[in-house]
Simulated scan of single mutants.
Amino acid sequence: MNDDLKGFYRLVQGSRERVFAWAQTLPPEVYTAEHPDFAYGSIRNIQEHIAGCYLIWVGSRGLGLPIPHTEAVSIPDVAAMREVFRQVDGVIERALNEFSALDEPLDIQWHNGPLTVTRRWLLLHPITHEFHHKGQMLALGRVLGHPSDTDTDLLLPSEV
């Protein structure tokens, strides 16, 4: 497998860890607080949505694993969410080791028919999706009175 993608995912994991460290400082009721103006409603729910994206796109569609049935309400706190992301990391590690021909067209099931993507796209789509939703989590934290004072952008290569 492409070592560049493995290195890139390590940068993503480090950036995710910064978000987890921030989330760990939140009072539990803030982590799970529902806000109607934000997609998915709470920081916890947004993180579960991100994890589900990885597990469905890479795990189910890319590796043929069963579709996970995790519900955000069953994840009570940041420690439990870290466990969900350990599962995500396992799926990504497996894909990084098993995927070959990264840029050859791949037909996957999407809604009512096939969607042509590549294995590289399957890996990169949930990463870009995670960073999109990370902004939502940080904005929600700010709205709830708990802004992050940590840089949560992609780690620098020297930080890995």
Rank of each mutant, 00 (worst) to 15 (best):
I67L: 14
N112H: 15
I127Q: 00
T150A: 15
K6E: 11
A79F: 15
N97S: 13
A101S: 14
L106G: 08
H133F: 05
N2H: 12
K134C: 04
I75T: 03
L156A: 14
E104C: 14
G113P: 01
L102P: 05
D77N: 08
A51R: 01
T128G: 12
P28N: 09
L154D: 03
L65T: 10
F8L: 14
S15E: 07
Y31W: 10
E71Q: 15
L154T: 02
Y40F: 06
G7A: 09
G41N: 07
V19Q: 10
V88W: 03
Y9S: 00
R120E: 00
D37H: 09
R16W: 05
D149E: 13
T150S: 14
T128Y: 11
V58T: 11
I75N: 04
H146S: 07
W57C: 10
L55G: 02
E71V: 12
W57L: 12
V91A: 02
R18A: 08
R82P: 04
G113H: 08
V143W: 11
D103Q: 08
G52F: 11
W57K: 09
Y9E: 01
A95G: 06
R10M: 11
T150Q: 15
L144V: 00
V73K: 14
D153A: 13
L122V: 05
I56L: 14
L102Q: 02
T32F: 11
S15V: 10
K134R: 05
E130R: 01
Q13T: 09
G141K: 03
E48M: 13
G52I: 10
V88E: 02
F8Q: 02
A39D: 10
R10G: 12
E93K: 06
V117F: 07
Q136H: 08
E29A: 09
P147Q: 05
G141E: 00
G141D: 04
L138Q: 08
R82W: 03
G62R: 04
F8D: 03
D153T: 12
L106Q: 08
Q13P: 07
G64P: 04
D103K: 08
L115F: 15
H49I: 01
D153K: 10
V160T: 14
M81R: 05
L106C: 06
P105L: 05
D149F: 12
D153C: 11
A72P: 01
D151W: 06
T25G: 14
F131R: 03
T128M: 15
D89H: 00
Q87K: 12
M1E: 11
R119C: 02
L144A: 00
I56E: 14
A139F: 07
V84H: 15
E130D: 02
N97E: 12
I56G: 09
D3E: 10
V88C: 01
R94S: 11
A51H: 05
V19I: 15
D3Y: 09
Y40P: 01
L63R: 01
E104N: 14
V30Q: 05
E17R: 10
K134T: 02
R86G: 11
L96N: 01
A95Y: 03
